[in-house]
Structures are given as structure tokens and as C-alpha cells.
Amino acid sequence: MKSKVNKSAYGYLFISPFFIGYAVIGLVPILYTFYLSLTKWDGFTDPVYVGLSNYQRLLHDSFFFQTIGNTLIIWIFSIVPQLILALLLALILNEKFIRGKHFFRAVFYFPNLISAVTLGVLFSLIFDWQTGAVNKMLMNIGLLHDPINWLKDPWWSRAIAAAVTCWQYFGFNLIVFIAGMQSIPAEVFEAAEVDGATKRQMVFKITLPLLRQVFMFTFITSVIGGLQLFDGPLMLGDGPGNTARTMIMYLYETAFKAFDYSYGAATAYGIFIIIMVFTAITARASRLKE
């Protein structure tokens, strides 16, 4: 049956600014990065075509593989407490009897408004092992005798990088969870209440199962965001033996500190593939449960 909608060709003209903008600002740099990854270029001389040698180098680069592990560890350290905290606070702040919930939602969202760089600097100062507040506080209350050099310890440095991310994003996830909870029809809870369900049962049998799509959304976006961790951890440093260096930090150091643009471009494509794989796994896992 022929559609009655008037599909005038001028419609394409109206949507063209976005596509032209995307092509110029998005697509061309992506393709140019791929071209660069097939060259040797230091930013001074003209690029020289070298085929896949940058990718071969990447496959044998133990520093790059170390950054993949670091990123995953930091991401896990960050996402688990982040989601638990956001969910618990969302459950509490979604209760009718809580007063000032709008105020608390705004307060918990505040860290999301601060740039990650600022948060990174803030955390590096409070975890400074000689002058930072954390050591001073722990020593004053007698929990520590000698100060801990947090950022020179492989695990603590990763945990602090994760804490920056967790603190920045739990407020955002909190808002998303609350939005998800508010979209659950009130009748479902009322019916459960009539049937004598306890609060605990309502959480586990109604709220959490119906929030599954919201969980998937936060999980997938956090996989993509978490694997691109950069500015916060950059302010905290590479950690001892590069143990807190993330994939994007490595890309940045390669391309913009060592000025090896071509290897940096290959690293960018390597990271793209890794993120794509993890996103696909997450999406697939969500479909399996349906």
C-alpha cells in the first residue's frame, strides 16, 4: 500500500546539516585516524605509508596490554560500588516518607557537574601521602602509625582512580534509577501491598526485576565510559610501574607526549575494537536473559 505521507525530497535538505556536520567533524577524523595508523608520522615530516606495522607493534606491546588490565580493574572497582550506592540511595530517596528528597538528589548529583580533572586534582591532594588529609586524619584517630604512600601503591592507586569515577557518576546513576523506579506503575505496588508483601519482597520481586532495562542502560554506558577513563586518572599519575595507567592515558602519552601520532592512531583503533567487543558482550548478555 502506498504511504500517504508526503516524502518530499526537501526533507533530506533539512536533515543534511547534521550529516554534513557529522561527516566533517566526526567521520573525516575517524577515517583520517585510520589512514594515519597505516603510516609513520611524527608531526613534522610527511607521513610515510608503512602498512600494518603499527598494528603488529600494538599486538606485541606489553605496555598496551597492561593498560587494558588496569582499565578493567579500575572500571570494576568503580562500577560495583557506584551501582550499589546509586541503587540503595535511589530506593531510599524514592520512598514517599523521606523529606527533602529533591535536595538530596541535587546534592548527590553535584559531583557530576565538576570536571573529572578537578576531581582528579582534588583526590591527588587529599591522598598526598605527606600533606594529604586522609593520612593526617587516619593518623590522628590512631588507625595509622606511619603514613601510607597511596599513589605509589599499585592497588591503592587504582582504587583511588576508581573512587574518583565512582564519586563523579553515582549521582547520575541515582537519577537514572529514580527515573526508572518512577516509571513502574503504582498499581503494581498497591496490589503487592494488598497481597501482604513486605518492603523487602517488593524491592526484590518488583522493583529490581522491572529495573532490568535501566540496569542494562547504565551498564552499557558505563562499559563504554569506563573503558575510556582518562582525565581523572591522568591527574593522579601512572602509578608505580604504570599500574594505574589506563588505555586512553597510554594513547595520550603516545600521541601527544611522545608525538608518535601514527602509533597513537593505531592504539586508538585497538581501543575502539576492545570497547566494541566489551559492549557487544554486555549487549549479548542482556539479550540472553530475556
Partner: peptide
């Protein structure tokens, strides 16, 4: 449309 494209470019 032409104006928007020109502004963008």
C-alpha cells in the same frame, strides 16, 4: 537549508 549549510561550513 542553503543558509544553514553555509553557516556550518
Amino acid at each position: 537549508t542553503a543558509s544553514m549549510i553555509m553557516i556550518l561550513l
